[in-house]
């Protein structure tokens, strides 16, 4: 059964189209990364999937049901973002206990051990936590709920590197014991490359691409060498990114559909190959400002005035 299915989904905020004919389908029991620039519509999509927002048109289904205002979806989904608010009279431990009462698959033992591992104090309150601590606590709630569809909206905001690492490890460990559909929106795609099974890249309210992480890693290749040498090779290739360094050196990112022969010849020609990380590729392909210009141009232009 499909965990998530969206067909021609449209969501409009006043004039701007937050989601524009979005089509997506995610199999169940997969860890899927949701990448995309700010304003690409990630949060809107997730809130619709969690049943918090109403879609304008199109079909959206979570485990075969329309999420908006649907108790079944809400019972089998958890949406974790940095605006999770819990009533202030409840201490952190009491919040976990509420989670235990509400969620059918809730693992309280896991919740408590994570709670202690990350050094929370039972009597603390949710609004007293720092940004990082709050994200960590929300993550614990998300994991312990073991909801068939667990959605994390930028779960690692404010977390330091060590905690992020622990989070990925905890997520994988618990996923291995209790496989479920996990959807994570993140800006740290490079840190999660080994964790995610699939990546969905969103751009301007629709899906740019949706592919397994392994394919994404080999989807493009980086070429560095003299501009003159690279020029002929790059003619008919699909270029994602170019960047000139030094006098005549250039760095090109192209689609990785080179034959072995081509690779051999290019190596002969002194072109060096380098892998392109998934997160870099995502940045390149969604570059609005045109392939060449980068932020340096902002400075260059001011310099030569």
């Amino acid at each position: 059964m499909k965990a998530i299915k969206c067909k021609d989904l449209i969501k409009r905020y006043r004039r701007k189209k937050a989601l524009d004919n979005l089509n997506l389908s995610i199999e169940e029991n997969r860890i899927v990364g949701l990448a995309g620039r700010n304003g690409a519509g990630k949060t809107t999509l997730m809130k619709i999937l969690a049943g918090l927002l109403k879609e304008q048109s199109g079909i959206v289904e979570v485990y075969g049901r329309r999420p908006f205002n649907n108790l079944f979806v809400s019972a089998n989904t958890i949406y974790i973002d940095d605006q999770m608010n819990f009533p202030s009279p409840l201490t952190l431990i009491e919040i976990l206990e509420e989670g235990q009462r509400f969620y059918y698959n809730w693992d309280h033992e896991l919740a408590l051990s994570l709670f202690n591992y990350f050094g929370f104090h039972p009597k603390q309150r949710h609004n007293e936590l720092s940004k990082g601590k709050e994200s960590t606590f929300n993550m614990i709630v998300g994991l312990a709920s073991r909801s068939p569809l667990t959605i994390f909206d930028e779960p690692t905001t404010g977390m330091d590197a060590a905690v992020r690492k622990d989070f990925y490890r905890a997520l994988l460990k618990d996923y291995l014991n209790h496989p479920r559909t996990i959807l994570l929106s993140t800006h740290y795609l490079e840190e999660m490359e080994d964790l995610l099974e699939e990546v969905v890249l969103m751009h301007n309210g629709s899906i740019f691409f949706h592919m397994p992480m392994d394919d994404l890693k080999t989807y493009s290749i980086g070429l560095t060498g003299k501009r003159t040498v690279l020029e002929p090779w790059a003619q008919e290739k699909e270029i994602f990114y170019t960047h000139d360094t030094g006098v005549d050196d250039r760095y090109l990112v192209i689609k990785n559909n080179l034959s072995d022969k081509e690779v051999e010849d290019m190596k002969q020609a002194g072109i060096r190959f380098s892998p392109v990380s998934a997160s870099d590729l995502c940045v390149y392909v969604t570059d609005e400002k045109g392939r060449e210009r980068g932020v340096d141009d902002v400075f260059n232009r001011s310099a030569d005035r």
């Binding site: 997969r30 860890i31 990925y168 490890r169 994988l172 460990k173 291995l176 080994d194 964790l195 995610l196 099974e197 397994p212 992480m213 392994d214």
Partner: peptide, 17 residues
């Protein structure tokens, strides 16, 4: 695949591949 994923901290699907 799960043991491998656990050992190498990678996604079980990758290990399975």
């Amino acid at each position: 695949q799960y043991k491998l994923a656990d050992m190498y901290n990678i996604n079980p699907a990758t290990a399975a591949k």
